[in-house]
Design a binder for these strands. Structure first.
Lengths: 332, 332
DNA sequence: CTGAAAGCGCTAACAG
DNA sequence: CTGTTAGCGCTTTCAG
């Protein structure tokens, strides 16, 4: 900047204003400055600019697992929304580890990101993480997982409705012994389980505790959980799985056991990950509109980041949508 | 910092040094400083620190598509390697768009990232992007895709070897009419095609131009490409697909046409994405060790970032590894 | 419309 | 072991 000012015989300030399209600069001066800037390949230094303006135009995105296609879709849509607004997105992969997540968030705070979107892996009600976040004054939006006791904006589906939708579908397909491979103790896992319970109760079906098994987040967990279900007698005739990777693993186990999907055991997952249609047996699922979640969250965040004072937290619930494919369609 | 210094009756510098574990500070003073720091919930301001040190401890990762499981794996392993070293990773999703990529890289330069890893979507030899990058002096490592004319460090597989390996395997399975669904005109697409050609020539098999069709990067492209192959007569009895998503789409088309995989048409992909084993027909593929690529690239970059002077570019080639599953295993 | 002065929060270099 | 001085590259404020 100094060079440009010197070369053109104007002051630093004139250059600074010209570069930022400030109003009180003559068109002629502006053009000269921009021309010289291009000649010198000059790019304004964001670090210095941030230091004085207090804004970094960085947005943090804290995710439990980038390799889970649901979060990859969210990341893509968040970036697609935020980048045109001038924000760069810093993605932190927490690997479902609450401690690691805490550290990442502290780092993002110290780096003065303008805002954060997080699918938090915290299990506890009110963790140090959210205290630090609130103290920092940095706006943030929760996605996918609700953290009890944290009153921040949220975007996601109502997981009990999702669980109910899936379970109702299995009932409608004629299943009577419906099992659930449940997820971990985060809000999505709890909510889906609750929806499953609620639906069976309302339908007057007795809930058997041994039909509810823990499946973790991924396909290996789903595979192992299904092996346990396959020990039972009578066998379940339908399984609602925490998510699509878990369901894919479960299907693998069922097929290896020589049983038919969906004829003997119908299976449904959740998330509608993009390859669901390409699996061994095209997978029925409940769609969560991952890209819509990302978009809405980005919108809420960008409002909060540009607002003078913190806007009221808002909760946006995306309605879950049933997608029936072969894995649960009974041809009775 | 000023507050801490004031509260403790020491100078700013003492605090600054204590916080950074500088050697010439007494243990006692350091402890007092750290204690007060915790009490005040103070976090050093990275922006200010970067301004004076010239280092941001940000690393850019420029990828064509986060939703492609190969790149998601690379991103995960890069982050896992770099974060313990104190770097935060900024991921830019270029959506296979060379212009968008150019803009992203400029932004990363202006933000003064300490280094970059890129799987570039540039088609041309020497684009403005790499000129800007070289001018900036920021170290960078190319992964997955070689850019002709750019002499930077590189980590990836030799794509012609990959293509040869896949094609040889199909030959060994008894296929005689081997088609190729090729990728776009980036180095990976060209290299795999070349390996396919080379192998067929050496085996004395005539290459039919109509057996080489364009499939783009993803499953829809693979599906459409396979539909075109299915018009041909005689039908191919083996297809080497650019990557696993393309292969998954191709399998879908074959099955819908009522043909058997692998009995009538054997299929092999590349990349060994993590769900390959869960597809309709478990997919044979060539593994590229995505996480190793990420790790090695991160290692090369971190060396370059901490070196005084730019180290010599290095090229690391990961050997491709054949993974045979049902989609190509002929039970003759 | 243009410019001068002051300072953002921190650290490098050097002096005590 | 501790402190002083100067300045990173930019913008904000206010005066011409």
């Amino acid at each position: 900047m100094k060079d440009i000012a010197h070369d053109l015989g104007v002051s630093l300030m004139t250059v600074s204003k010209a570069l930022r399209n400030h109003s009180d600069i003559s068109q002629q001066t502006r053009d000269r400055v921009l021309k010289r800037m291009r000649e010198l390949n000059y790019q304004p230094d964001w670090v210095a600019r941030s230091m004085v303006t207090g804004r970094t135009y960085l947005a943090g995105l804290v995710l439990p697992d980038l390799m889970h296609s649901f979060f990859a879709e969210v990341a893509t849509s968040v970036a697609r929304k935020l980048q045109p607004l001038g924000y760069e997105v810093v993605i932190s992969n927490t690997e479902e580890n609450a401690r690691l997540e805490q550290r990442h968030v502290e780092v993002l705070i110290a780096r003065k990101v303008d805002g954060m979107i997080l699918a938090s892996a915290q299990h506890q009600k009110k963790s140090a993480l959210f205290e630090a976040l609130d103290r920092s004054g940095i706006p943030y939006v929760l996605i996918d997982r609700v953290i009890p006791g944290v009153s921040a904006s949220y975007v996601g589906v109502k997981d009990d409705d999702l669980g109910a939708l899936a379970t109702e579908h299995l009932l409608a397909q004629g299943c009577r012994r419906i099992a659930h491979i449940r997820g971990p103790a985060v809000s999505t896992g709890r909510g889906r389980l609750q929806g499953y319970r609620r639906t069976l109760e309302r339908a007057g079906v007795k809930i058997k505790p041994e039909y509810i098994v823990e499946g973790d987040f991924g396909d290996t967990g789903g595979y192992r959980a299904m092996l346990r279900l396959l020990q039972l007698s009578p066998l379940p005739d339908g399984v609602f799985c925490y998510n699509d990777p878990v369901a894919a693993g479960a299907i693998k186990a069922v097929l290896e056991a020589g049983l038919q999907v969906p004829e003997q055991i119908a299976i449904i997952g959740a998330g509608n990950v993009h390859y669901s249609d390409l699996l061994r047996i095209p997978l029925s699922t409940v769609d969560q509109s991952s890209s819509v979640i990302g978009e809405r969250a980005a919108e809420l965040l960008s409002e909060a980041m540009s607002a003078k004072k913190r806007p009221e937290p808002r909760r946006i619930f995306i309605p879950p949508r049933l997608v029936v494919r072969d894995s649960s369609r009974r041809t009775r």
